[in-house]
């Protein structure tokens, strides 16, 4: 016989909330940081993806001045360096450090280097900036592109 609760109550919802709360606490203290994970505060964060013809690098760099960004490729190493002035986004005339309640956004100089697969062609690179993400598209060498092999039936 189903019991009539009057309204639908999920008995596991509270556990779920508890788990979330614990996860959040663990994240704050971080006793165990996996060696492969990026340290908190790394700037910029980078993701790399691959299509049949290209390697795509997504550099998460919100609010940077493109004039101060230096992106270069050497062999299969892509490096990005530059400077970000986080206080520029405040849009105040003069920034006084004592007026900050919280300062979590990265500010200052940075350099990062990532190694890309050997199959890239460093001469065919395009980069664009949109919504705070620098997207770098690097073509693969023609001879390194995956080819489909037709299986013939005898």
């Amino acid at each position: 016989m189903p019991i009539n609760w009057g309204f639908w109550m999920d008995p596991f919802r509270e556990f779920d909330r508890l788990q979330q709360e614990l996860d959040r606490l663990m994240e704050m203290t971080r006793p165990f940081v996996p060696i492969r994970s990026v340290a908190t505060g790394t700037f910029p964060v980078i993701n790399i993806g691959e299509t049949n013809d290209n390697i795509l690098v997504y550099i998460f760099a919100p609010g940077v001045d493109l004039e101060k960004i230096d992106l270069s490729i050497e062999g299969n190493l892509l490096s990005i360096s530059g400077e970000r002035d986080a206080s520029k986004a405040l849009k105040v005339e003069k920034v006084e450090p004592e007026r900050f309640y919280r300062q979590e956004r990265f500010s200052g100089r940075f350099t990062r280097v990532v190694s890309l697969p050997e199959s890239i062609d460093p001469n065919q690179v395009e980069a664009s900036y949109q919504n705070g993400i620098i997207k770098v598209k690097i073509a693969k060498k023609e001879e390194k592109k995956p080819r489909r092999i037709q299986v013939k039936a005898n």
């Binding site: 609010g63 986004a89 705070g132 993400i133």
Partner: peptide, 18 residues
């Protein structure tokens, strides 16, 4: 986020790339 106070109010800036 950065939180900054000016005489007229409070400025909150959040980094949300993408």
């Amino acid at each position: 986020v950065d939180i900054y106070e000016i005489a007229e109010g409070l400025i909150v800036v959040a980094d949300m790339p993408g």
